[in-house]
Amino acid sequence: MTEGYGAISRRDVLKTGAAGAAIAGSIGPGQAALAQPDPAAPPRAAVGLKVNGQAVRLDLDTRTTLLDALREHVKLTGTKKGCDHGQCGACTVIVNGRRINSCLTLAVMHEGDEVTTIEGLGTPESLHPMQAAFVEHDGYQCGYCTPGQICSAVAVLEEIRAGIPSHVTADVSKPAPMTTVEMRERMSGNICRCGAYSNIAEAMADVAGVKA
């Protein structure tokens, strides 16, 4: 599929009388052909994601990162923008079961992918065990990095259970053990400027059922 400069722009969608939300799926191919492309408009593309179990269809400037798509278009602002360069981990979400930096991936590259954000892990009424453990162990201060920390922490325990090795695994020919040393190493992509690290490590150990 090519989405070039000739693709439907948001302005075109408004011109053709579609809803302002620019749902690409609502535009028929005939209408697309009739639309007059604006050569100066940045290229756009359509993408369908499954976010926290719900299908969403978006028409986006191709430059839109998954992070900006989630925050600005799907309106799920739990996922945070920290450095926007993959260094801080505040934007960590789980895509098809794996944690990634949502700031370093384009939304249009995620057609059909299942995205889990902090909003999808639990709700205030029914917290995910990791969310409850962060509360219990005071695993934050300002809270800005927390959604990323929790998404990362949930995925880290899965990675250890799956036996994936890490830098601190003594013998990589064997499955990695569920230890706090393993958890700490694997959390190095999530920065906390308030310095809640030891409490985050305790929350993770609690959920994993090991001694911190």
Binding site: N101, P165, V172, M187, S188, N190
Partner: peptide, 23 residues
């Protein structure tokens, strides 16, 4: 790789972060 080319596994897990290695 872990059994026969462990230096490669070791190098990979020494690089970047878990999030980046997943991508």
């Amino acid at each position: 790789v872990r059994k026969d080319y462990a230096v490669l596994t070791r190098a990979l897990v020494a690089g970047a972060s878990g999030q980046l290695r997943n991508k």
